[in-house]
Computed example of a mutant assay.
Amino acid sequence: MARSNKPFPKKPVFANPVKDSPYAFTFDETEIKPQAQKGRGAVSNQASTRFERYTSVRVDDGWQHAGSETEEEPRPETQLFLDTSRSIVMRNDSPDIGFSASLNPYRGCEHGCVYCFARPSHAYLGMSPGLDFETKIFHKPNAAELLRAEFARRTYRPESILIGINTDCYQPLERKLEITRSILKVMDEHRHPCSIITKSALILRDLDILAPMAARRLVRVAVTLGTLSADIHRKLEPRAPAPQKRVATMRALSAAGIPVTIMVAPMIPAINDHEVEGLLEAAHDAGVRHAGYTVLRLPWELKQIFEEWLTAHFPDRASHVLSLLRQIYGGKLYDSAWGVRGRGTGPYAQLIGQRFRVACEKLGLNRDDKTLDHSQFRKPSKNPGQMEMFGD
C-alpha cells in the first residue's frame, strides 16, 4: 500500500538506490483497479474524503500477483456500531424540500445503493463513503426515549417528522433491532404526525401501528423505486428489495388505507431515465396516488464512487452518462444550489421533468390533499405514572 498527498502516477518506477551496483534494478508498480463485489454497491473504499490529508492506492508490485484472476478479495462483512447521539430530531431550513424536521434510526445503510446522497456523511466518522458506508452501520437503540424527551420539551411544537431521509429506516438490521418500530410506537402514543421513506417490504410488519395512524391522518409513506429492471437493480442497489417486491409493498400499504407516494429516484441519464412512465404506471396500478422524482445527486465523495461504479458496470457508456450529468448541472457533475440539486437545469433536465409531469397528469396523480393533522398531538406527561386529568 502506497501513501501520497498527491495524485498517484499510473506506473511509478522504483529503483535500487545503490548506484553502479551490479545488483541495481528497476521495476514497475501498477495500480490495482478495484472490481465490483457481489452484493455490494460501491466498488471500493478508495474514494478519498475531504477530511483526509493522505489517500491510499493499492498497487501490484509483482511479487504476489495481487489483483490477478487467481486471487479473490475477501468480502467485507457488515459490522454494527453504537451511535451515542444525544438528540434525535434534525432540522433544516432548505426552501427546496418539503420537510423541516427529520430523524434517522441508523447511519450507514446495508442496502448498498451506490447513488445514496448520504454516503459522504460517513466521512464525518473517519470512514469511507464507499464500502464502509454499507458495511459499518451505526444504530441508535435509545431513539424512542430521545424522541419522547424531545416531545416533552416545554417549547416543543408539533410538525411532521420525516423518518429515514438519509438512510433506510427499514434496512435489514431493523428486522432484529426494531428501532423504527419503537419510534412509531412513540409517534402513535402521542398522536404525532410523521412521514416515512423506504425501499423495504419490512414496513408491512408495522401495519398494526401504521393503519390506525393513517385513519387519523397521522402518517404517510413514500416508497423509492427507480427501475423495474432486475439487472439494473442488482447493480444499483444490490441489497435492497427487488422492484416487484416494492410494487407489492405499495399495493399492500394502499390496501391498508395508508397514503403512498412513489419516489421515482434517482433518474440517471442513459441508465434508467427511460423508465419514468413505466414506473409511474406500475405504482398507479398498485393504488398509489402521489408521486415525486429526483435526478441523480453526487455531492462530495459520491462523484468518485459513482464514476468508479460506472466504469465497473457500464464501461461502454460511462463517458456518455457523465456528459449528460454535466449538461444537467451546468457543466459540473453536481450543483448543490437550492432549486437545482435533484432537478438540474437545461434541456435534458427539463425533458425529464416534463415527461414526469405529463405522465402524472395522464394517470391522475398528485390531485388530492395529503396534508397530515398536527392538532391531535399529546405532550408526554411530566409524571408518567400519574393519570391525566382529562382524556380523549
Rank of each mutant, 00 (worst) to 15 (best):
M1F: 02
M1D: 13
M1G: 07
A2R: 07
R3A: 12
R3I: 14
K11P: 01
Y23F: 14
E29M: 13
G41L: 06
S48K: 15
T49Y: 01
E52D: 15
Y54E: 15
A66V: 04
E69L: 08
E71F: 05
R75G: 06
S94T: 10
I97E: 09
G98P: 10
A101S: 15
R107P: 02
H111C: 02
G112S: 07
C113S: 05
Y115V: 08
P120K: 06
G126P: 00
D132C: 01
I137W: 04
R148F: 00
T155A: 11
P158M: 02
G164S: 07
T167H: 11
D168V: 06
Q171H: 02
L173R: 08
E174V: 11
K176L: 03
R181Q: 14
S182L: 06
C194N: 11
T198I: 07
L210V: 07
M213Y: 00
L218A: 04
T224F: 06
S229F: 01
A230N: 14
D231F: 01
I232V: 10
I232W: 08
K235M: 10
P238R: 04
K245G: 08
R251Y: 00
V264M: 03
E277W: 04
L280Y: 03
A283I: 00
R289Y: 08
E301S: 14
I305Y: 01
P315L: 12
H320D: 15
L322W: 00
D335E: 10
S336C: 03
T345M: 09
G353L: 01
A359S: 14
E361Q: 13
D368S: 12
S375E: 06
S375A: 06
K379C: 07
K382F: 07
P384N: 10
E388S: 13
G391M: 01
